[in-house]
Amino acid sequence: MKLAKIEIVRKWQDDFQSSGTCTIYDADGFPLFSALSLERGWKNNQRNVSCIPEGTYPVVLEHSNRFKRKLWEIKDVPNRSECKFHSANHWHQLNGCIALGLKYEMIDTDNYQDVSDSKMIMDVFHITLEKFDKVQLQIINDF
């Protein structure tokens, strides 16, 4: 069984937004992919408005009716479901999910850093993970 580890290291967070890095490692700890991460801020793990709590979670590829494609879903999040990795440029486009991007930049006028090129980066994320049978996510707060 081929195992991949996704590591999200949050570097900044407030009530609205969490920003950090996402790296995919193979079973030997070799980095295969790296991007910037974007999530909602911490709101006590409330559904649809909070980022996922720090911890370790299994991740499974499943079909999303909303997005009409297969997405990587984060399982076993306490009191939550449907937490996924998907493309988005702004924190307010996320309902407890995680978006990835190429760089931080001000795309809109809310004074928060957005992520650019999310669709392209998410495509590379999917290609990187397609050869793995088992995927695990570790979320670390480092701020």
Rank of each mutant, 00 (worst) to 15 (best):
G29T: 07
S19P: 05
F67R: 02
L71E: 05
K131M: 14
R10V: 01
Q13D: 03
N44G: 08
L102A: 05
G101E: 00
T128Y: 11
Y104E: 09
K5G: 02
L100I: 15
K84H: 13
L129M: 14
W12Y: 11
D142Q: 07
F125M: 11
N89C: 13
K5F: 12
A99P: 12
W91T: 02
M122I: 10
V49S: 02
L137A: 07
S87W: 11
L32D: 12
Q13G: 01
F33D: 15
K103A: 05
M120S: 14
S18A: 11
N48C: 08
W72M: 06
F67V: 03
M120Y: 13
S37F: 05
K134D: 08
D117I: 04
L94E: 04
E7C: 09
S81N: 04
T56R: 02
L71K: 00
V9C: 08
E39Y: 03
V59M: 03
H63M: 06
V49M: 06
D14H: 02
K11S: 14
T128E: 12
K70S: 09
W72P: 00
S18W: 00
Y25P: 02
E39R: 01
H92E: 14
A4K: 05
S87F: 12
H63F: 09
D26K: 07
I24T: 08
A35D: 08
V77R: 02
N65P: 02
V60Y: 06
F16K: 08
F33I: 10
H126C: 10
C97M: 01
V77C: 03
G55W: 05
N45R: 01
A27T: 10
D28P: 06
N111W: 05
G29N: 04
T128R: 13
H86D: 01
I98N: 00
F67H: 08
H86I: 04
T21V: 07
L3H: 10
T56N: 04
C51H: 01
T56Q: 04
Q113D: 09
C83A: 12
P31C: 08
R80E: 07
A35M: 09
E105M: 14
D76G: 02
L94V: 05
